[in-house]
Design a protein around this nucleic acid. Structure first.
Lengths: 134, 134
DNA sequence: TATTGTTATACTCTATAACTATA
DNA sequence: TATAGTTATAGAGTATAACAATA
């Protein structure tokens, strides 16, 4: 049972790659993830973003630098701590995120069109639960 | 609905990384995937393996070279086509696979110990279905 | 001419370690 | 001294394109 789940988890990479192909060249998956988290959870500092992405802070730092250079997020001084900055989506970042959402939704709708809505919701819920278990 | 599924799919990378950490240094995830497919579907040529892994054939070629160098698979001449070779697990490869399965199972059991068996099966089934939809 | 693989190159993601600046 | 970030370096996965060998 566990072995089969492990197999499916590794094989799911193909699906993720398909979704990644819908992204514009300027916005690699790592950038999209940063924008999505900031949109969902609001402004935050780098360490908090690192926790939510579950990657090393050095990786987060590079992703953030990438999206900041393109004007999709702003880094403002943290009034309470001179070592960190507050990260926040800009209007341009929000607009891009809308576009990305439309693309991935279209891709999923195209390939999952024959799924029952309840099954999609169920899968989403189970994935969220799996993630929180780790 | 689709957007939320897309988000969970990208976030699931953290879980995959956790599982990957259980692998021995000599056997990166790509190698493990090759061995798993050969174990599940039996001997085959590179092009077939490429289909099953859903990656580019150039990538498959490198993964296969890696596991072949370590003696985990054998590449025998294809009697029907001089351009390709038949890939098959060796006893050493099979033994390694057993070890890998034990490790990933232990890791999943540790973190998913409080899940109902039906939920694990359900998640596995839905992931398989998602993959086949793509 | 078409197909099967291989190899060179490049890009993205990730982690570790060393380092700077501030608390 | 401890913490927040940054940067350099290295390892792994993947795709594209050019190429060799065989069908």
């Amino acid at each position: 049972m566990y072995a089969e789940l492990a197999r499916q988890l590794t094989a799911i990479g193909a699906v993720k790659r398909e979704l990644a192909r819908t992204l514009p060249p300027e916005c690699p998956p790592g950038s999209a993830a940063v924008l999505a988290v900031l949109d969902r959870h609001g402004e935050m500092r780098l360490s908090r973003l690192t926790e939510l992405l579950a990657i090393d802070i050095s990786v987060t730092s590079r992703h953030v630098a990438h999206v900041a250079e393109r004007g999709w997020i702003a880094r403002e001084a943290d009034p309470g701590d001179g070592r960190s900055r507050i990260l926040r989506l800009t209007p341009a970042g929000r607009a891009l995120l809308l576009e990305l959402g439309a693309r991935s939704t279209a891709a999923l709708k195209r390939t999952l069109g024959d799924w029952a809505a309840e099954d999609i919701t169920l899968l989403t819920t189970l994935l969220a639960r799996l993630r929180s278990s780790f």
